[in-house]
Design a protein around this nucleic acid. Structure first.
Lengths: 195, 195
DNA sequence: CGCGGGTGTTACCGATCAGTAACTTCCGGA
DNA sequence: TCCGGAAGTTACTGATCGGTAACACCCGCG
């Protein structure tokens, strides 16, 4: 039928790509390993030889996604030497990512896999924690009055925008994410001398 | 084994309660109708006689949840005649709900059921839209300078708090939801004369 | 040339899935 | 008392699930 991906060279990479796509389209619990293997242009055996189980494949998929985000950060940092510029570039990038109809793969996985012992849960928690700390550090360098509070505010806003996009659609509250986030930044940074 | 619920009288209500509990514990896709019926102290046939399918059971579960929220609103409105008090009471209630380890059932369902045609999706979208409009109306009555923006801000924050609680845990950004939300309200309402 | 590792293929396992049929049992109301 | 509807019970369907065994294949490297 419709095999998606002859792109990547190695089967392992194709499986990872196909799994990411299908998890987004149908949800993690919504697609079986057989369908993933077929979409990757390979078979179930090869999938199980590279990843020991579906749960491990899920975890590895998310780890792969964290690498994508890390690369995006590196690129943004290279393009924006000024911390405040970088912070606003992050807002812009997050707004674009929130236009995506399926939000954050990591957060979605946490919702879809309630079992705290699932290998994917640790990946999600570590990533989200690191992301928030990185944001707090950036807020501090950008001169925010209370960087911790600003970082949490922005974290909540972006997380909310992504989930709101999925439940209400693009016309809902998420369309004002950029505006609200930038206002929060301006408010926190502009008031740095008044404290 | 462990049947959960001899509480409600009618089987229909017991099934609804059991389904809600199990969906929260294991995720919607994570539990089968047989297990739900057993947890409700009944059987699969009775379940299928009341709800035509699992998908319809899911949708009815969420409809039931919207009624719970509506009751909560009615109670809060009765207790808080002043709009600004009501708005802050809503923040308080939302903060407590965000302590819940599994967030908002409606939003979770939207994430777990990517198929736009699923009967549950309409329930979620209608509810979230109505919730935002109600909030915007309340913000206007509370004297916010820009009620639409404040309503969207609060919507994003509460949605973000609930999903963040699930991915990072209770020590993450969600612990500052109350503080940030109240600051947003004070900022929007306090500045109503300056515009 | 031959060898070995990565890959493909097929068939299978037991479990579970959503959903249905046929029959019995119980209870309340007339 | 009897009747009817709601509920319980058992057994079943066909599909799909995650995961595995056995074997054929192909290609690069020595």
């Amino acid at each position: 039928m419709g095999l998606i991906c002859p792109s990547g060279a190695r089967p392992r990479d194709r499986i990872l790509d196909a799994a990411r796509d299908m998890f987004r389209k149908f949800g993690i619990k919504g697609c079986g390993v057989d369908a993933i293997a077929e979409a990757a242009g390979t078979n179930k055996m090869t999938l199980y030889r590279h990843f020991g189980s579906k749960d491990e494949l899920i975890a590895e998929c998310l780890r792969d996604q964290t690498r994508v985000v890390a690369d995006l950060w590196a690129k943004m940092e290279a393009d924006n030497p000024d911390p405040l510029d970088l912070l606003k570039a992050w807002v812009k990038a997050s707004a674009m990512a929130s236009c995506d109809s399926r939000g954050c793969d990591l957060a979605n996985a946490a919702i879809e896999l309630p079992d705290e012992g699932h290998p994917a849960r640790k990946v999600v928690e570590d990533f989200k924690r690191a992301q928030r700390d990185r944001l707090a550090d950036l807020c501090a360098r950008a001169g925010a009055r209370d960087p911790e509070v600003l970082a949490d505010t922005l974290s909540l806003l972006v997380e909310g925008a992504r989930v709101s996009r999925q439940s209400v659609g693009p016309e809902g509250p998420c369309q004002r994410f950029s505006r609200v986030a930038e206002a929060a930044i301006d408010n926190a940074v502009g008031a740095r001398e008044t404290a």
